[in-house]
Amino acid sequence: MMPASLMERAAPVAFTLGLGILWEAICWLFNIDPIILPAPSAIAESAVTHWKPLLRHSGATMWTTLAGFAIAVAFGVVLGMVIGWSRAIYRGLYPVMVGFNSIPKVAVVPILVIWFGIGEIPAILTAFLISFFPIVVNVATGLATTEPELEDVLRALGARKLDIILKVGIPRAQPYFFGSLKVAITLAFVGSVVSETIAANAGIGYLMSVAGTNFQMPLVFAGLIALAIEGIAMYALFAFIEMRTTRWAFRSSFAAGT
């Protein structure tokens, strides 16, 4: 019998392996055509043969994703602070933001292509457009939900709005901000891959669409797996940063209470 903590730690690996084995077994048992669903072994084989283009295109996707994400962070923080700062701006901008966010970003890609041509710029911009919203909302929420009593305490000391934002609002918004980064990075991935699939000459999305038209299904799936790995790595990185920067929010009842 394994100790419970060890079991808990081994669980993700065990489940991933189990899923792979199940997949392999189904392909083998039902004799599924590799054009429909290639077995994990075929995908792995393809990944090994095509490791060079896979790596290059993964790099391209990573770059467009991170570039779009970086713009989203800068823009999202500024806009979030502006929105969280004043109630009037909040009320005015919020419906516009929600409306914008409800547009499927894939519909914007053709416009971006007309403006900027085929290449990495539409991918970067799509990643940015799709990922800035959660950052804005979280930063604004963190700022806007400062306890009114705490604000009274500071105002009774002669604090200006800027003091309150600096001493309370920004630290308070941090867990929201870092929490939103995990969400934003995965969304940025979606954006860049969507754009690459439609109009690009590099990136995993491009590789998958080319491989798909050549009926190289194992390679298409190898691309998917590569995306999953990149996505998990980025998510884990930002989850780690979140834990490190805002430990107090995990320890106190703060996060649970709001």
Binding site: E147, E149, L150, D152, V153, R155, A156, L157, G158, K167, V168, P171, R172, Q174, T246, W248, A249, S252, F254
Partner: peptide, 18 residues
């Protein structure tokens, strides 16, 4: 305006958790 010399305490301690 706000008096600038007052200290206040409320029912909730309202401490900054960070």
């Amino acid at each position: 305006g706000p008096v600038k010399i007052a200290g206040m305490a409320f029912q909730n301690a309202n401490l900054l958790p960070w």
